[in-house]
Simulated assay, not measured.
Amino acid sequence: MEGLKVSDANLVVYILPSKANRIPQALRGELSSLLFKFNEEFDGVVLVYDILAQSKNGKILPGLTPYFGVNVRAKLLLFSPKPDMLLEGKVMKLRKESIHVIVLGFSYATIAEEDIRGEFRYKIKHGEEVFGSTSHKRHVIKVGSMIRFLTKSFDEEILHISGSLIPANTGSIGWLDKHMRESSEVDRTNKKNREREAHGSRLINEATISLDNEYPPKKSKRSKMVE
């Protein structure tokens, strides 16, 4: 899935003096406060952090509350969806006018009716609401389906995504992956057939040339008289 990136970060974490004897725990507590929030400095939502190194000495900051800063080097996993990126999520609710999806377990996405391509038709099948493809009967989107969709926009404040199912490479992941494998197999088969045909044509041409060289055309009697 697109929208995920790993970033190396050099941070200064400010800790209260009362926690000076518990620095590792204090660092984890401060970094954990960044999780699942959009961070402008990193241009993304922090999903996971891993502390790689920390300074042994902290710099005391003067003030009413004398914090001290600890330099930390960490690796961050960020979620930073941009327009036209392909995202994946689980369908949580489905209505005629919209499809509601959860991405990575925390970010919600909505795909409005006008952003669902025409081949999908809303219907109730066996008492269950679904969007079924009119082009491929087995391509169905329902509650619980994992889908791939295009990002239109991302609201950084409430972590909400506006998505689209207009492109042909979006829809149910299960069907898309299976269709892609089948298409690849067909392409490979067609390629092998073309190679066999080309090889056969080459053998025929080589055999024809060989026969021509071994049995050159005889001259007619008239040609011999002219000579």
Rank of each mutant, 00 (worst) to 15 (best):
I124C: 06
L61K: 11
L176C: 03
I99Q: 04
P17I: 09
D50Y: 05
T134E: 09
K5S: 11
A198T: 13
K75A: 12
E119S: 04
P17H: 13
I158C: 11
I147H: 12
S210G: 15
Y122L: 15
D8P: 09
I23N: 14
K224Q: 02
V12L: 12
N190L: 08
N57K: 07
S220E: 10
E41H: 12
G105I: 04
S7F: 09
I161M: 00
K219G: 05
R202W: 08
G118E: 15
I60N: 03
E119V: 08
W175R: 06
S210V: 10
E88A: 01
N57I: 07
M225N: 07
T170F: 08
R117H: 15
E113M: 02
G29H: 04
L34S: 03
P83M: 00
I124T: 08
L27W: 13
Q54P: 02
N57L: 06
S210L: 15
E2R: 15
K224R: 04
K19T: 01
A20G: 07
A109F: 00
I204K: 03
P216A: 13
Y108K: 03
V226G: 12
K123A: 12
K142L: 04
I99E: 09
L34W: 08
L61N: 13
S183K: 05
P17F: 10
H199C: 11
D212C: 09
P216Y: 15
S223Q: 13
E30A: 11
V140N: 05
I15T: 10
K224C: 01
E182M: 06
S7T: 11
P24V: 14
K93M: 03
S210F: 14
I173G: 00
V143C: 01
K5I: 14
G171T: 03
